[in-house]
Every structure is written in structure tokens, then in C-alpha cells.
Amino acid sequence: MAFGRLTGLQGMRYRGGGPMLAFLLHRVTALGIILFVGLHVLASFAMQQVIWGDFGIFINTIYESPWFQIFVIFCVLYHALNGLRIVIMDFRPGLLKYQREALWLQWFIFVPIYALTIFVVIQRALAGG
């Protein structure tokens, strides 16, 4: 890199690219799934008790909203696909040469499934389901 080629904000930008985004999204989606599943288990537990039933219903209304569903579907689908890519790459290190291509393939698989699913979710939400 020649001296002074990138200055100012351009020089400060971290150019990790696709793999960095995948690493970041893997962690963020993991935290999203843990948030949802943890709340879901605690809400299910609270629903079974006499005292904490209102608390369970309160949490249920949060994650039954279409916004939260769209977020959770993104988390689960991305984490599953990215995890499968990591498993394949770890057990066949030779394929690491094609990591960037694999990331694009992963997005090409992710986008249609996710689009179809949130289409159904939004359709149901608009229909008042």
C-alpha cells in the first residue's frame, strides 16, 4: 500500500470484507437466538405458574409481533447456513481457498429462503393473523 493512498475516513475504514461481515453476523445472530430462546423458555415456565402468568403473556406478545419474527428468522437462518459453511470449511481445510465464493453462495441460498419466509410473515401480519 503506497503511502497516503487512503486518507481521512477512507483510511480509517476496516476493510475486512465478506468474511469479517460473516464473523460479525455469526456472533450477532447467535446473541439474537439466545435472547429469543432464553426469553421463550422463561416465558413458557412463567406461563405454567399461577403467579407469573402475566409476565409470560407480556413476553409472548413481544416475540409474537411480526418485527421480532422477521428478526428471529434472520438470526436462525443466517446462523444455520453460516455454521454449516464453517463446519464444511473446518473438516475440509482445502476448501478455504474458495471462502469468498462460499460466502456468496451462502447469500444466494439465504436470500430466497428468507424473502419467501418474511413474505409469508408480512402477508399474515397484514391480514391480521
Binding site: 444455520a80 455454521g83 454449516l84 473446518d90 473438516f91
Partner: peptide, 12 residues
């Protein structure tokens, strides 16, 4: 982590 990830996908 690898084995359980694959198992969760399989169970799903």
C-alpha cells in the same frame, strides 16, 4: 460445537 450444530440442523 460442530457436532451439535450439525445435530440441531438434522433434528430441525
Amino acid at each position: 460445537t460442530r457436532v451439535s450444530g450439525l445435530s440441531i440442523v438434522l433434528l430441525a
